[in-house]
C-alpha cells in the first residue's frame, strides 16, 4: 500500500458518499445518470467476487463491502425511492454499446480464461467507460449541479491518483498490471475534458457548471 493508492481509495469513497448524500438529502436524483450508477454497481459486483475466496487485508475486505453497499444503496435510491425525480429522458446513453464491446474484449484479452479472471477483466474494462452515461447526460442537459461536479472531481482524482500509484509500484516493486493500467489510462482521459470545465467554471464560483 502507498499514499497514492490509499488517497485514491479515500477519494473514491468520498465521491460515492458525496453522491449518496446529495440524493438522500435533496430527495432527488435529478441530473444523475442512473445508468452510470448501475454500471458501477456491476463493476463492483463482478470485481469483488473474491470477497469470500481471497482474503487480502481487513482494509481490502471492509472497503469492498462498503463500496458494494453504497453502490447498491445509490442505485436503489435512484430507481426506487426517488424514481419520480429520475430524468430517464436525459439519461439516454445506450449502455449496450458499452457492455457488448467490454464483454467481448474481456473474453479476448485477459490473464487467464477462468470465470473469476474474466469477470475481473470485465469489471476493469467496464469501469473505464462506466462514467460515460453521466458525462453524456451532462452534455445533453448542458449543465450539472455543483455537487454533481464535485462527485465527478473526486472520481477523477481517484483515477489520477491510481495512475500515480502504478508509477510508484512499478518503480518500487516492479509491479505492472497491464490490463488495469491501460484501462485506467483510458478512464482517466475521459475525465480530462471534465477537469478543464471544472477548474475553469465551477471553481470560479459560478456554482452550476454550464456547458458552452
Amino acid at each position: 500500500m502507498n499514499i497514492f493508492r490509499l488517497s485514491g481509495d479515500v477519494c473514491h469513497l468520498v465521491a460515492i458518499i458525496i453522491l449518496f448524500l446529495k440524493i438522500w438529502r435533496s430527495k432527488s436524483c435529478a441530473g444523475i445518470s442512473g445508468k452510470s450508477q448501475l454500471l458501477f454497481a456491476l463493476v463492483f459486483t463482478t470485481r469483488y467476487l473474491d470477497l469470500f475466496t481471497a482474503f487480502i487485508s481487513i482494509y481490502n475486505t471492509v472497503m469492498k463491502v462498503v463500496f458494494l453497499v453504497l453502490a447498491y444503496a445509490t442505485v436503489s435510491l435512484i430507481y426506487f425511492r426517488f424514481r419520480k425525480s429520475y430524468d430517464s429522458e436525459s439519461d439516454s446513453f445506450r449502455v449496450e454499446f458499452l457492455l457488448v464491446p467490454v464483454a467481448g474484449l474481456s473474453f479476448l484479452e485477459n490473464y487467464s480464461f477462468t470465470p473469476l479472471e474474466i469477470l475481473w477483466t470485465f469489471s476493469i474494462y467496464l469501469e473505464s467507460v462506466a462514467i460515460l452515461p453521466q458525462l453524456f447526460m451532462i452534455t445533453k442537459t448542458g449543465e450539472a449541479e455543483s455537487i454533481t461536479t464535485h462527485y465527478l472531481f473526486f472520481l477523477g482524482l481517484y483515477r489520477t491518483l491510481y495512475l500515480a500509484n502504478w508509477v510508484w509500484r512499478y518503480h518500487e516493486e516492479g509491479f505492472f498490471d497491464q490490463i488495469a493500467v491501460v484501462s485506467g489510462v483510458v478512464q482517466t482521459i475521459f475525465y480530462c475534458d471534465f477537469f478543464y470545465l471544472y477548474f475553469t467554471r465551477v471553481l470560479r464560483g459560478s456554482g452550476k457548471m454550464t456547458l458552452p
Binding site: 493508492r5 473474491d50 469492498k64 490473464y111 488495469a180
Partner: peptide
Amino acid sequence: EDDKIPKDEL
C-alpha cells in the same frame, strides 16, 4: 499470460 499479478487493488 502472466497471471501471477496480485489482485490487491480495489
